[in-house]
Design a protein around this nucleic acid. Structure first.
Lengths: 337, 337
DNA sequence: TTGAAAGCGGTACCAT
DNA sequence: ATGGTACCGCTTTCAA
């Protein structure tokens, strides 16, 4: 049971002594900077190995006056999309040689500001905000303190770079697909008054018009939940005539519709095509097989990091609003042959 | 557009000068240690306010040779339970005045070990492992480097403290509930060979025996997914006689069953009760209304932190295996009156 | 109750 | 290519 007297970790000086060189040289060798003779480098790396040396982040940060980490705030980790974005930020920054320091308890604006505070005490030079804070003023306040980019919503007014999926395009893709499988009477279950939902609705109307289907365009107010979808479904199924397709603002909403459809004995996709949005894992199951519009967490993370790098290089450039492309995921719920 | 010449952040010395005292005194005052005259303290805090001073974590860690943060490794953040546990660890450690430093890219054993490496370079004095690494040897290796506790599985063999939900008890609670609503022929959809699934199965058989229903006990091999549940459902519904209830190893599995049941025109809960496990958010929706066994992320996180504290206080105490109590969540899928 | 000064483990600049 | 050395901003004795 290795009671382990975990002794003090070795320092640069220890490595230097063992390798018979100066601390400076070890420092250079470890970071792969400057000119170090291959021979010396080997001796040094060998000593590092033997001593199991790990550089002290604190000392490094202190001496260089900056940490290499990018601070990352997550509003709600239990949201699969946000979680996945956070994961990609971690992965991509690591590949970048930076690494991410994250704070996942930024659920309220106040918490988010606290979180930024602790990240600042960790001396991160920049931040990525994933879905938090919520309020525009809070976002602005954070952006004032640290060069930051916001991933999640399109922040037109706030003075910060932001990255979002292009929901207008997403809705267009959805409608195009539905039309391509023969649907004409396509109802959209809207997500409400939020800007994102509004943009999706805009895209929907746009696409319907483009196909000359404006007269069939109809938005039914719903929300991002199974229950809301089920309720909307019940309402629609009580009508005399079924629409050809339902395009829901989220997969959850669509799942609610699907559920209700089965109860009403409506056959999917023969009598009714159903399309979701977000492409959560569940939708990919053979059982649900829900067609959807995929938001790529990876693309969002990547775009966010790139935007941040541009901002750091050029602090005075105008704010960017980056739109990430959504992708179509076709499954059984819209597979008419 | 505040082009912000973000100047160097103020230091202890700045605060000291402004308050007209020594750096040492400021240090004490800020941390609330030692004896500081109320008058001095006020002057100091005022200066802190005015300068917007935030202590430099790096300097602090370096000087005191330890960071206060607890390193936290998460195997898969996109898993809602793990995400929620991580969130609670963050919240609870923050209340504790410590804070968590997390690494959410510990999906493979190798990544997990890398992650521990970087946490060590941040000089965290201890670690909480949430569902990662997977391999026992990898876990052992981590535990050797840092006092750690593992949340997720019951690690009997490995030399590390661990906390898990008591799945034996969970299964017992599930069966008790099903029996209480009149079910006798209760089939369990098992999760396979994993220790957790095995324990759940043990609990199930135990409870069936306790109710004198051993002859009805039947475990159908399934898995933690909607599709697996649907498949098991199809098999069961093809039989001559329906069971009274199905107790699935996970909510996803149960959802698969539910789906299939609707297709077969089986009325839930009248003809068949269905019970899940995990109590994911989805299950709570009015539409699904799936009864389940709830694993409390908060309890798991809390138990983990406490175990870690005990370990730090008493490094040589024997390893603990903490079991957290699951809770019953009754919904429509088992609500017979 | 307060202050002075010696580190903590690196980095970075300046010599050589 | 390598070594010497002055910091980085804080904590922590030790004295006063």
């Amino acid at each position: 049971m290795t009671t382990s007297l975990r002794q003090k970790p070795p320092t640069l000086a220890d490595v230097a002594k063992r390798a018979g060189v100066s601390r400076s040289l070890v420092s250079l060798a470890i970071r792969g900077e400057g000119y170090v003779r291959a021979e010396s480098r080997e001796k040094i790396l060998k000593a590092v190995q033997e001593l199991n040396y790990v550089p002290n982040f604190a000392a490094r940060t202190l001496a260089s006056a900056r940490s290499s980490y990018v601070g990352t705030l997550v509003g709600d980790v239990t949201n699969p999309l946000q979680a996945e974005i956070a994961k990609w930020v971690t992965v991509l920054t690591a590949e970048n040689g930076r690494g991410a320091l994250l704070s996942i308890d930024a659920g309220t604006d106040q918490k988010a500001e606290q979180a930024i505070e602790s990240l600042m005490s960790l001396r991160v030079p920049s931040a990525i905000l994933i879905g938090a804070p919520y309020e525009k003023v809070a976002i602005a306040r954070v952006a004032e303190r640290l060069p930051s980019v916001y991933i999640g919503r399109l922040l037109k007014v706030v003075d910060i770079d932001s990255v979002t999926t292009d929901h207008i395009l997403g809705a267009n893709i959805a409608v195009d697909h539905l039309v391509s499988v023969g649907c004409r009477r396509i109802v959209h279950l809207g997500g409400g008054a939020s800007p994102g939902a509004q943009r999706m609705e805009t895209g929907y109307r746009e696409a319907m018009a483009r196909h000359g289907l404006s007269e069939h365009a109809e938005v039914v107010r719903s929300a991002y939940s199974v229950d809301a979808g089920a309720m909307a479904g019940r309402a629609l199924f009580a009508r005399d005539r079924l629409p050809d397709a339902i395009f829901a603002c989220s997969d959850l909403t669509a799942i609610g519709v699907l559920n209700e459809a089965v109860k009403h004995g409506i056959s999917i996709p023969d009598q009714l095509c159903v399309m979701g949005y977000d492409d959560v894992t569940l939708s990919g199951s053979e059982t649900l097989a829900l067609s959807s519009i995929h938001q790529s967490a990876r693309d969002l993370a990547e775009a966010g990091i790139k935007a941040l790098e541009r901002r750091l290089e050029n602090p005075d450039a105008p704010r960017e609003k980056v739109l990430v492309l959504p992708r179509l995921a076709v499954r059984r719920s819209t597979s008419r042959t």
